[in-house]
């Protein structure tokens, strides 16, 4: 069975004045239908660049190599015209900041209609009906009125709903949500996450959720991939990642994320800071911050290895701590 969406050995390199930067380093990921894959990592870990590349949105000074398959066809080799038929149609993206992702001088209804007209050739009346139904689906009150509004007239939560409506309107196979709730208040975040969960079961789309919030991951993800300095350091089933953590970086992330149900006096922080992508340390990229570092970590880069069925970890050692 071919995978719905698959990334194979993807590398992304940027040429900058300070030399070449390896933003994404030979990563492989896949998602099946109706599944939610969460990509976790800190800023600069390459999590957004991976999927911007998939959408053909790589910056001019970036080069990519590898394969990104959607339904068996490689997105990286496609011409712009072919890609435009898929983007917004079979693969859609929800961005972090809905204010900058929506066009400010177009009514939101118009913006969504553009997608429908482009991909499905829908007429004016039909598209109006479809959009209204979609607005009701994503719980936008008074859809008729909201369609006539400009993005700045809507609140942050409503704007994000408009973005989700736009992403869902062609019933895509894959939805990439890049930090969809980071700019929102917690109460609104909870509403949006519930909506995404419903969408996942309802239309059976695969969701790729890019986030740094492990709480959000715990609520929705089926599988998790943890990224650090452009590489996947651990991936697997969500329960495996949380309860049977293998990589010291994931362990560090878990122990320093605050939770309402635990009260600790002193947080076990990961020391140091994420490495500069144009001078990654030798060997394991995490070695300067790792509290279990040994000599081999500074010499050899660890490979992603199976630790258990469908649980991969890139560490020289087997830390079955917890």
């Amino acid at each position: 069975m071919s995978r719905l969406f698959e990334i194979k050995n993807l590398s992304v390199i940027f040429d900058t004045a300070d030399g070449t930067i390896r933003a994404v380093n030979n990563i492989s990921l896949n998602v099946n239908q109706g599944e939610c894959l969460a990509i976790v990592g800190e800023s600069g870990s390459g999590k957004s660049q991976t999927f911007l590349t998939a959408m053909g949105l790589l910056a001019d000074n970036g080069r990519s190599s590898g394969i990104i398959n959607l339904n068996g066809s490689n997105l990286l080799e496609m011409k712009r015209k072919e890609l435009n038929k898929l983007r917004g149609n079979r693969i859609a993206m929800i961005f972090q900041d809905p204010m900058t992702a929506l066009t400010p001088h177009m009514k939101v209804g118009e913006q969504i209609r553009e997608v429908l007209v482009h991909h499905q050739g829908a007429g004016k009346k039909d598209s109006y009906k479809i959009i209204k139904k979609m607005f009701e689906r994503v719980n936008i009150p008074e859809p008729d009125k909201r369609m006539q509004m400009y993005p700045h007239e809507l609140s942050g939560g409503l704007r994000q709903r408009v973005m989700i409506a736009m992403a869902l309107i062609c019933k895509p196979d894959v939805i990439i949500a890049d930090e969809p709730t980071t700019a929102l208040d917690v109460t609104v975040q909870a509403q949006i996450m519930d909506l995404l969960k419903e969408v996942k079961t309802e239309i059976g789309a695969a969701i790729i959720l890019i986030t740094h919030d492990l709480g959000v991951v715990a609520g929705i993800a089926d599988r998790v991939a943890v990224m650090y300095a452009g590489s996947v350091v651990e991936s697997g089933d969500v329960f495996e990642i949380f309860y049977n953590t293998k990589h010291p970086y994931t362990l560090g992330l878990l122990s320093c994320s605050l939770s309402l149900d635990k009260k600790i006096d002193f947080l076990e922080a990961i020391k140091g800071q994420p490495p500069n992508p144009n001078k990654l340390p030798n060997g394991c990229a995490f070695n300067p911050r790792c509290n279990k570092v040994k000599a081999i970590c500074k010499e050899k880069e660890p490979k992603l290895k199976f630790r258990q069925q469908s649980h991969l970890s890139a560490c020289h050692f087997e830390f079955g701590v917890k």
């Binding site: 709480g215 715990a218 994320s257």
Partner: peptide, 14 residues
């Protein structure tokens, strides 16, 4: 507010 905060623990969160 309290109920809206996600807990980084899949079992209790779900």
């Amino acid at each position: 507010l309290l109920s809206a905060i996600p807990i980084p623990d899949p079992i209790s969160e779900r």
